[in-house]
């Protein structure tokens, strides 16, 4: 069933409407929310949302519980290739939990929180931005990791990044839900403005595995990947020092050694190489720059080091 979560009048003959699809069967009271689309330029999850809806529609008898799918929390952004909320130039994922008596965007955010609150689990799926490609991963802050890790391990991701919490991130959807008792996992995968089918399928498998573990799905599922669990300190950041055109020499997902050449920053005007970019540590290239034009400071890659601070194969921290 398609339901309207909230609607607000726009200036001329249109409503800003947030919709969800509620799919329900059986007697189980459990509810899972699949949330996507706060950032209008992230489209990977559009395929994932469709996959889940399609599977449930065809095999509804195997579902025991409620699945709420919110494919587009920022409809104006998705329909206009805009990351933030068009006209406001505002990152929606910095406005949560919103406010019932606030501005238009604050009231929308507050209605979304109210609608999701109380779910047994919420999965907020992101797909990076147009600049960087990401291996399917789950990100969580240290304080939430104790509660969230057992669920994160079921989601069939390649790794789980436990990072320090930053005050500014307190305005995200996930933080707002987690801090009010609704367990929310943030998945990052792929790249902005594109759809990578294999990642959609990978997280699809993870979500059904999670539902099976929660007693909400009676169908077959695949054995999830055993993720690498990493603390913040185990991630090496590679930023450009030069400006120019970045051309990678490694492939996404490669294992590299410290000082290996990751790519070059080129100067097409002079036909010169401005910077040879090298790995800052040994490890897995899990983030790689997709958009070639760079300034000093542009993030080129993130490398996950596999050492005593990381735990391979889904072990405990």
């Amino acid at each position: 069933m398609i339901k309207t979560v909230t609607e607000t009048m726009l200036a001329v003959n249109e409503k800003l409407r947030i919709q969800k699809s509620t799919i329900k069967n059986g007697s189980e009271k459990k509810r899972i929310c699949i949330v996507t689309g706060t950032h209008g330029d992230e489209l990977e999850r559009q395929y994932l949302a469709w996959l889940i809806g399609d599977e449930l529609r065809r095999n509804i008898s195997l579902l025991d519980g409620t699945v709420d799918i919110y494919p587009a929390l920022n409809p104006l952004g998705i329909d206009s290739i805009t990351r933030g909320i068009p006209q406001f130039d505002l990152d929606m994922n910095r406005v949560f939990p919103g406010s019932r008596n606030g501005t238009m965007i604050e009231t929308v955010c507050s209605a979304i929180i109210d609608d999701i609150s109380g779910a047994d689990i919420c999965i907020d799926v992101h797909s990076s931005n147009i600049f960087l490609r990401e291996l399917p991963q789950i990100r969580m802050s240290v304080p939430t990791s104790e509660t969230l890790l057992p669920y994160a391990k079921m989601l069939n991701v390649d790794f789980i990044w436990v990072h320090e919490s930053a005050t500014v991130l307190e305005s995200t959807l996930a933080h707002s839900l987690n801090s009010t008792g609704t367990k929310t996992l943030v998945v990052e995968m792929g790249v902005g403005m594109r759809i990578t089918r294999e990642y959609g399928r990978q997280i699809f498998d993870g979500i059904f595995n999670l539902m099976k573990n929660m007693g909400m799905w009676k169908g077959d599922t695949v054995e999830p990947r055993r993720p690498i669990i990493s603390q913040n300190s185990a991630v090496g950041f590679v930023n450009s020092d030069a400006d120019g055109v970045f051309l990678p020499e490694v492939s996404f997902g490669d294992y590299v050694k410290k000082d290996d050449v990751l790519g070059n920053v080129l100067d097409p005007l002079r036909g010169e190489i401005r910077e040879v970019v090298r790995a800052v540590c040994d490890g897995l290239v899990f983030t790689l720059r997709e958009y070639p034009i760079v300034y000093g400071g542009s993030l080129l890659a993130r490398i996950l080091t596999i050492d005593d601070k990381t735990v391979k194969g889904g072990g405990e921290i």
């Binding site: 990351r83 933030g84 130039d89 931005n129 600049f131 500014v168 950041f237 930023n239 034009i293 300034y295 000093g296 400071g297 542009s298 993030l299």
Partner: peptide, 21 residues
Amino acid sequence: MGNTDINRMFPGYDQGETTQR
């Protein structure tokens, strides 16, 4: 590029992203 707001980047970070720098 990237549409970040410099007034949301303070105190900044000299090894970080462009607007942090």
